[in-house]
Deep mutational scan, measured.
Amino acid sequence: PKCKGCFKAIVAGDQNVEYKGTVWHKDCFTCSNCKQVIGTGSFFPKGEDFYCVTCHETKF
């Protein structure tokens, strides 16, 4: 599969995040607002966007 963030291949051994059939490298899975890496931490999906806890609390 290819990462939705950088469009490069995800190979065995890469740390990745999967959500609803889409996959990202862990470092490519970032907050849509502040761009900080969410990685495998908590996040809030809103449509096609993903927000870290801090930005979600501030924005919504």
Rank of each mutant, 00 (worst) to 15 (best):
32 S>V: 10
25 H>F: 01
8 K>P: 00
20 K>D: 13
52 C>F: 00
40 T>E: 14
5 G>E: 11
40 T>S: 07
3 C>H: 01
12 A>H: 10
11 V>M: 09
51 Y>N: 09
9 A>D: 10
10 I>F: 02
33 N>G: 04
49 D>E: 14
28 C>H: 05
25 H>C: 13
45 P>E: 05
18 E>H: 15
27 D>I: 13
45 P>R: 07
8 K>S: 09
3 C>Y: 08
21 G>E: 08
13 G>Y: 09
15 Q>F: 08
15 Q>T: 11
24 W>L: 06
36 Q>H: 11
56 H>E: 13
53 V>C: 11
6 C>G: 01
52 C>R: 01
31 C>E: 02
41 G>H: 02
7 F>I: 11
38 I>R: 03
5 G>D: 14
5 G>W: 06
38 I>L: 05
18 E>A: 02
43 F>C: 09
25 H>G: 01
5 G>C: 13
43 F>Q: 09
30 T>K: 08
29 F>W: 06
6 C>L: 00
13 G>N: 02
47 G>I: 14
11 V>D: 09
21 G>K: 15
41 G>D: 13
58 T>G: 13
41 G>I: 07
20 K>A: 08
10 I>D: 15
54 T>D: 09
51 Y>G: 03
8 K>C: 05
6 C>P: 00
52 C>S: 01
2 K>I: 15
23 V>C: 06
34 C>V: 00
9 A>M: 03
21 G>W: 13
43 F>E: 08
12 A>W: 05
30 T>P: 14
32 S>C: 09
4 K>Q: 10
12 A>M: 14
36 Q>L: 07
51 Y>R: 06
40 T>L: 10
34 C>F: 01
37 V>R: 14
29 F>Y: 07
54 T>N: 03
28 C>P: 01
19 Y>I: 15
54 T>R: 13
57 E>W: 11
52 C>L: 00
7 F>A: 14
12 A>K: 14
51 Y>I: 05
13 G>R: 10
31 C>K: 00
46 K>T: 10
41 G>R: 05
30 T>M: 14
55 C>Q: 00
19 Y>K: 09
25 H>L: 00
8 K>L: 07
60 F>G: 12
31 C>P: 01
37 V>H: 11
49 D>W: 12
56 H>Y: 10
22 T>D: 06
47 G>S: 06
8 K>R: 04
52 C>K: 02
6 C>Y: 00
50 F>K: 06
25 H>W: 00
4 K>F: 15
43 F>P: 09
47 G>N: 06
48 E>P: 06
26 K>I: 02
2 K>W: 15
59 K>F: 06
30 T>R: 14
53 V>F: 10
23 V>D: 14
22 T>C: 13
